[in-house]
Design a protein around this nucleic acid. Structure first.
Lengths: 210, 210, 210, 210
DNA sequence: TATGAATGAGGGTTCATTCAT
DNA sequence: TATGAATGAACCCTCATTCAT
C-alpha cells in the first residue's frame, strides 16, 4: 500500500500521487489526512509541511489532474485534423486518461455534489488563496468542456456531423466518459484502449450525417 | 428549506423525501442526520424513532429510488414494443426519473466511490439486516442494467440495431444518464423531457444499422 | 482531583492510574472518557492518542491490576513455606493490594455483572484484539484463583487444614477480600494491614483441623 | 424472556420482578427503562405510569429486596436459639435469599460504587422523596448488618465464640455472601442450600473458641 | 393505562489542525 | 522536515423523560 520506504523523504509529487489514489478510492469526505499520510509513510501532521491544509492538498490533486488531461487534449484540439478524427483522438485521450491516471478521475467528477459539498465550499472565505485556485480550476474544467464543444460545432458546420444540441451532446459524452472512472477495473475484460475505441465508435456513429 | 411546519408530526415518507434531497445535495459522507432532521423540523435523535440508524435511513432512500425507477422501466422492458421504441421510452423514463426524483439519482450513483466509501461498507458486519438489504439493492440495480442490455441485444438480433459491444454500450448510456443527475438544474435551458429526447436521439442514432 | 498540572504532558501510566481511580469510584458504565481525561487535565479526544478506545483503556487498567496482584501472590504461592504460612501471606498480600491499589480492585470485581455488562461483552466482536486481551485477562484471573485453591489443597493433603470444599472455600475467601475493596476507607478505624491480619486469622482458624 | 403475554395488563409487582432480573443481569447503569419494559411487554413510556422515574423504580426493587431478606433474618435474630444456631440459620437464609431472589442480590451490592454512581446520587436533590427513601433503605441495610453483629457479639459474650473483631468479621461474612450473588449459577455443581451449608460450616469453625 | 413521537443531554469516537520538540 | 501530543468541533447514537392521543 505504502508507496515509499520508511527511510526516504517524500516530496509534494509523491504526496499528490498518493492523495489521488486515496481520493479516487474513498471519495472526498472519506479521505482523511491520515489515510494520505499513511500511503507515503508519513504522519498527518507532516503533510502540513507540504500543503497548507486538506483543501489545498486536494485542490492540488485536482489541478494536476486537469492539467494532465488538458495537456493531452489541447494539442489535439488545436491540430489541423478533420473534426471526426480530432474527436476520436480526444475521446481516446480522455478515456485512457481516466483509466490510467487517478488524478484525472478526481478532477473530472469534482463537479459532483459529493465532492463539492455545500459545507466544504464556505471554507473558501477562510482561505482566499484556495478560493482563487478553486475558481481557476473550475475555469480550466470549463475550458476542457469547451474544447469538446468546439470540435463538435466545427464538425457540424463543416457538414461532417449531423446537427445536434451541442451542449447536451457534450454533457452526454462527458458523462459517459466520467462513468468509466467509476466502473473501470484494471482486471476487467477490456483495457482502457479498447473501451476508448468502442466509445469513440458509438459517439462518432451518433454524429453521422443522415 | 424546511418542508414541514413546526407543528406537524412527520412520517417515514417525509423523512425519506428530505433525506433524498440532502443526499443528492451533499453526498453520502457529508449528509448528516442533523441535516436530514432539520429538513423536516426534527431533532437528529427523533430520526431514530423511524430508522434504526443512518445506514438504514439512507438505504431506504436508495431502495425507494431504485424501486421507483424500476417501476417505470420494467413495464416498458417487458412490453411488446419493438426494441427501438422500447429503448427510446426507457431512456426517456430514466432521464426524467433522474431529473424529477432525487432518490433516483441517489440510487443510480450509489456505486460511485464517493458515495459508498470503502470505509462505510465494512459496517455491514455490524448490522446484518442492513447488509442483507444492501445486497438486495445491488441486485436490483444490476437488474436495472440488465433490462437495458436485453433491449439492446434484442435490437441487434432483430437487425434493428447495428452490432455493438453491449455491456460497454450500456455503461456508456447509463453513464451519460447518471451525469444528468449531476449537472441538471431545474432552471436550466431545457427541462427533463427535452434533455431526455435529445439523449434518446443520440443513442438511437448510434445504434442505427449501417 | 487533578493529578497533573495543566502544563505537563501525560503518559499512559498517568492515564491508567487516573482511570483506575475513576473506575473504582464510578464503575464501568458510569466511567466516562471525559471523567478520566479530566483527572489528568486532558480532553477526552486526547485519550485516543494513547488508547484505541474505552474498552482498550479500561482493559489496560484491569491488566495492570491483575498483573500487580499476581506479582505479589505468585512468588508466595511457589515458595517453600508451609501452606498455613503461605496462605496467611497470600491473604495479606491480596487484601493490602486491594486497599492500596485501585486497579487491583477493578481487576478483582471485573466479573461482577455491573462491570462486565451483558451489553458490553458482545462488543468484543468489533475489536478482535480487545477480545483476545479480554480472554487473556480472564485466564489470568482464573490463574489467580487457582493459586489459592492449590495452597488450600496442599494444606488439606498435608493434614494441616481440615478438609473443606476447596472451590467453595476459595470463593468464600475471595468474596470476603473483594468486598474490602468496596467498603474500605483510608480514613477508617483500621488500615489495610490490620484488616488483612484479622481476615487471615479468621480463615486460618476456619481451616484448623479438628 | 418476556414474563407476561402481550395481552395482559401488568402491575407494579410484575415490573419489580422484571426489573430485579434485569438489574442483576446488567447492573445499574446498563439497565435501561426499555430493557425493563420489554421484559413485561410494555413500552418504556408506560413504566412512567407505575413509577415516577428510573430511580424510583430501582429503589423499589432495592426496597423489596431488603425487606424480603430482613423478613427472613429478623425472626431468627430475635429468636431464643443459641447464637451458634442462630448464626447458622441466618447465614443459610441470607445465602439462599441471594441465590433465589434477584432483588436481594441487588439490595445487597447496592453499596458497591458501580451501582451508587457518584453521578446518580446528586439526583437526590431533584426528587426529595426518592432521597428520603434512599436514606431509609440505607438505614435498613445497616440494620441488616447490625443483626449479624449482634449475634456474633452475643456468642462471644456467652463464650460460645472466640473473641473476634466483630465489625471486620461481619464484613468478611457479608462479603463472602454477596460474592455468591456474583458467581452463583443455577446449573452449577451445588445448589443454594449446599453452598449455604458449607459457608456456615466455615464461619462457625472460624468462631470456635480455642 | 398504554403508546408513538419527540427531545435535551450526554457519551464514544473521528478528524483537521496546531505546536513544541 | 518530521512527529507526538493535544484539542475543538462535529458526528452518530442512546437514553430518560414528557406529552398528546
Amino acid at each position: 500500500m505504502a508507496r515509499k520506504p520508511a527511510d526516504q523523504s517524500v516530496n509534494k509529487e509523491d504526496i499528490l500521487l498518493a492523495a489521488a489514489d486515496v481520493l479516487q478510492r474513498n471519495g472526498y469526505e472519506s479521505t482523511t489526512m491520515k489515510d494520505i499520510a499513511a500511503e507515503v509513510n508519513l504522519t498527518a501532521a507532516s503533510l502540513y509541511h507540504h500543503f497548507r491544509n486538506k483543501d489545498a492538498l486536494l485542490l492540488a490533486v485536482l489541478e494536476a489532474g486537469i492539467e494532465h488531461i488538458l495537456s493531452q487534449i489541447e494539442p489535439i484540439a488545436v491540430s489541423s485534423y478533420p473534426p471526426d478524427h480530432k474527436l476520436r483522438l480526444m475521446i481516446h485521450a480522455h478515456v485512457t486518461g481516466l483509466t490510467n491516471n487517478t488524478a484525472v478521475g478526481a478532477a473530472m467528477v469534482f463537479e459532483i455534489k459529493s465532492l463539492v459539498s455545500v459545507k466544504t465550499a464556505p471554507d473558501d472565505g477562510r482561505d482566499p488563496e484556495v478560493a482563487e485556485r478553486r475558481r481557476a480550476f473550475i475555469a480550466r474544467r470549463d475550458q476542457f468542456e469547451r474544447l469538446f464543444r468546439a470540435v463538435i460545432q466545427e464538425g457540424i458546420e463543416r457538414g461532417l456531423f449531423c446537427p445536434v444540441d451541442v451542449p447536451i451532446f457534450v454533457k452526454t459524452l462527458l458523462g459517459a466518459h466520467n462513468w468509466v472512472g467509476v466502473w473501470y477495473r484494471p482486471d476487467g475484460r477490456l483495457n482502457g484502449d479498447e473501451i476508448a475505441d468502442r466509445m469513440a465508435d458509438t459517439f462518432l456513429r451518433a454524429l453521422q450525417p443522415a
